[in-house]
Design a protein around this nucleic acid. Structure first.
Lengths: 108, 108
DNA sequence: CCGTTCGATATGTCTTGACATATATTTATC
DNA sequence: GATAAATATATGTCAAGACATATCGAACGG
């Protein structure tokens, strides 16, 4: 049922949550999405509604964006460069690294 | 109910549909999302499921991406540069325009 | 052992999404 | 200008599934 692309989004959410050292319950409190539901979401057991996705993303400092297919490689390149896990413990995090090489590399 | 950000996504979908000269029914056939539902979605009457969003986006050559907040301006800049309406009638469309100025411009 | 914290599960409620139909909007003909 | 057909969008009803609340079992520490 879940369109593979959805799995990718979910994985990004989970990774972001863990990278910030948040438990499902912590995320639940901040996003007002029940912990039980976060569990199901991360397990791919539900096809969550867009508002839930937006809400979870927002708490994790992520934003849901519709990108034209032609721009996806460039966008991924930028996102990769930022590596959104680096904050607090690792350093001040450079605003934007010089990685606008427009790499065609694909994410797993 | 709907998080303002959701409206932005919906608006992008609708604009993309119209830019391609597709009727709700056309989009329905291609995405397998019922036309009646597309109507409700575009009117903000429903909080659609993520799989539906992904499906509609795919048909419109758009991809749903989670972008770290810090990278959003740069991403928007690229997307803006592409101006996803230009295809077919206007020309072959340059791969990526020289607009990596990392503008801080925000969308309405 | 008991309390706390973690993710997973069970059941009840509310809304999406599917199907059929109604209401615009456009076009053609008289 | 009125009527009718064709096309586009909106609305009504109902079942499937997301979401809410409460609870469970595992892991850790006092």
């Amino acid at each position: 049922m879940a369109t593979y692309l959805l799995d990718q989004l979910i994985d990004t959410l989970k990774t972001a949550r863990e990278a910030r050292g948040l438990s499902q319950r912590d995320l639940s409190v901040k996003s007002r999405v029940p912990q039980s539901h976060i569990s199901k979401i991360e397990n791919g057991a539900v096809d969550l509604r867009t508002s839930s996705l937006v809400e979870l993303a927002r708490v994790l400092d992520l934003e849901l964006v519709l990108v034209p297919r032609r721009a996806v490689p460039a966008v991924r390149s930028i996102v990769r460069g930022l590596a959104q896990g680096k904050r607090g413990s690792d350093g001040p995090l450079a605003e934007v690294p010089p990685a606008y090489a427009l790499d065609d590399e694909d994410d797993g």
